[in-house]
Amino acid sequence: MTERRDPDAILAAWLDEGPDVLPESTRRAIEVTTRTTDQARHLAWLPWRAANMNGTTRLALVAAAVVAVAVGGLYVLRPGTDGPGVGGSGSPVPSSSPSSASPTASPSDDPLDTAKWTTYVSSRYGFSIDRPADWTEEPADHAWTFENDSEAWQSTGVESFVNAEGSVKASAWSVAVAPGTTVEGWMEAYCTGQNAGPCTGIQEGAVDVETGDQHPGRLQFGPEKDTMAFFLDGQTMYVVAVWRGETDPTVRPYGGARKLLEAFSSTLTFPTEPPQGSPSAS
């Protein structure tokens, strides 16, 4: 005769089997990797954070900047290239400062293939944007406002997408702006809103970028700051961000934060009717 068995009891017992104590070797491994791994910093805007850097980092960045300027200079001055050249036409985006040199529109080489990405339509903001198929969506739970959300990079007022590993997050949102607002002016105001540091001229390192429906914008990137693109359509500012620096290891599989952001931006389509909202900081 067969004894009556309770499947749930068996299931519970089976689930309880197994180790419950993290081996000492794993603890030690975590300890060692922690000691040898730098923490990520929320470096939204480099000029502000530069003041907080240690000497070595500052020196390395200065050296990198010198090399970049030297290489850039050679590129610009070399005859017969397709580079921007001296006195080039500059950016088609209106600038708040006549003296700000505008780097040329230069999408990174070999853009990411977005053909198999999944389209996400923002019910809150009205725009549509594609995300990689295996990324998770985190819909905005309130309307982003400059006053309440500009200081919080983790604001939940943005439409966000997180990769399968949980290591890279991209976000997009829009906000109404006052008449006369320029992309560069708003970038600077956003920078200032995030911290109290110097943000004047922050837009000078930006490059041109374009949405899927051919709206021009400006893309701000750097090795240790969040990568962000800004698009102005009438009185609405659209922002797309990859919350990673260009050289962060987590964005390496995508060819860097800039390439990933360009891919997101290339799928962004503005709503036919701009979203309603009160004007924000200009």
Binding site: T26, I30, T33, Q39, S167
Partner: peptide, 17 residues
């Protein structure tokens, strides 16, 4: 063990955020 190590390493890196 690998997953736990990976999770804690990522937690350490991302904690400032």
């Amino acid at each position: 063990q690998d997953a736990v190590q990976q999770a804690f390493l990522l937690a350490w890196r991302e904690l400032p955020r």
